[in-house]
């Protein structure tokens, strides 16, 4: 807690619509309390813009607790800004210095078309989930939950991957706009557990191939994991690569599980 305030210069990407040409616009952000979050800082700027009769900046946000995955912008060349393991909404202004210039740009990838200003369309991630990012367990068909023993370490590891919030920072940070971290996290979340075995190879195959319809390919830079607000590990990508080759090689009729 502190009563300090900052005066900043913002360069924010403005773009009217998907087909419009965008560009940076400069706005001052004055008297921003250091306890404010980054998005609260944008709120203040928007209030000022409305007061001046200018159309406010559209930016993605919702829960502001770092869990819904709605928010996410490039801040000074880094997805979600410079703080490790932090979504944009959880980035606080105390991490900036008075007089800083902050460049704010939307996620960029061919698969993430800009909707307006800082908001992009991330529906490609849903397309990857809908082909295999699930366990087919129609309601009512489940056995007693404790009939399935899952070692604690396995459940923990699965949870590490399931923590993904689907913000798309991994794609945004990747020099190739690859969707590997997102996809592999979902594959590991489900493949790690006994419930996920029946559909395992089909899941891996379908999800990888759909991912490649939208996203680039992994060249193992590791930017994704560094940008990830949930610190999803690159190990899941390695696992996915291995499992994908297995899914191609194994004859599932003979696999037996």
């Amino acid at each position: 807690m502190s009563e300090e305030t900052l005066n900043l210069k913002l360069r924010i990407w403005r773009q009217d619509g998907p087909s419009s040409k965008g560009g940076f616009a400069e706005y001052p952000a004055n008297n921003i309390p250091t306890d404010a979050s980054f998005l609260e800082m944008l709120d203040v700027v928007n209030e000022q813009l409305i007061e001046q009769g200018e159309v406010p900046v559209e930016f993605p946000h919702d829960c502001r607790e770092g869990i819904c995955g709605t928010c996410g912008v490039m801040i000074n060349g880094r997805a979600h800004g410079q703080e490790k393991a932090t979504a944009t909404c959880q980035l606080h202004m105390r991490k900036f210095t008075d007089g800083d210039t902050i460049e704010i740009e939307p996620w960029r990838a061919a698969a993430f078309p800009v909707v307006k200003d800082l908001v992009v369309d991330r529906s490609a991630l849903d397309r990857v989930i809908e082909v295999g990012g699930f366990i087919s367990a129609p309601t009512g068909s489940a056995p007693d939950a404790n009939e399935m023993l899952i070692p604690k370490d396995v459940a923990e590891s699965s949870m590490d991957a399931a923590a993904c919030i689907g913000c798309g920072a991994c794609v945004a940070a990747c020099p190739n706009s690859a969707g590997q971290l997102f996809t592999s996290a979902k594959i590991w979340h489900l493949n790690a557990m006994p419930q996920g075995q029946a559909e395992r190879y089909k899941r891996t195959e379908e999800m990888v191939e759909t991912m490649e319809q939208y996203f680039g390919s992994c060249t193992n830079h590791g930017e994704c994991s560094e940008a990830c607000p949930k610190e999803i590990s690159l190990d899941f990508i390695a696992y996915m690569n291995r499992d994908y080759v297995k899914s191609k090689v194994k004859n599932r009729r003979l696999a037996g599980q």
Binding site: R11, W13, G23, F24, M74, N76, G77, E103, E105, R108, A109, A110, A111, P175, N176, S177, A178, Y214, F215, G216, S217, T219
Partner: peptide
């Protein structure tokens, strides 16, 4: 990759 990527302005 170059088809999937869009460069950042900043």
């Amino acid at each position: 990759n170059s088809a999937s990527n869009q460069p950042y302005a900043a």
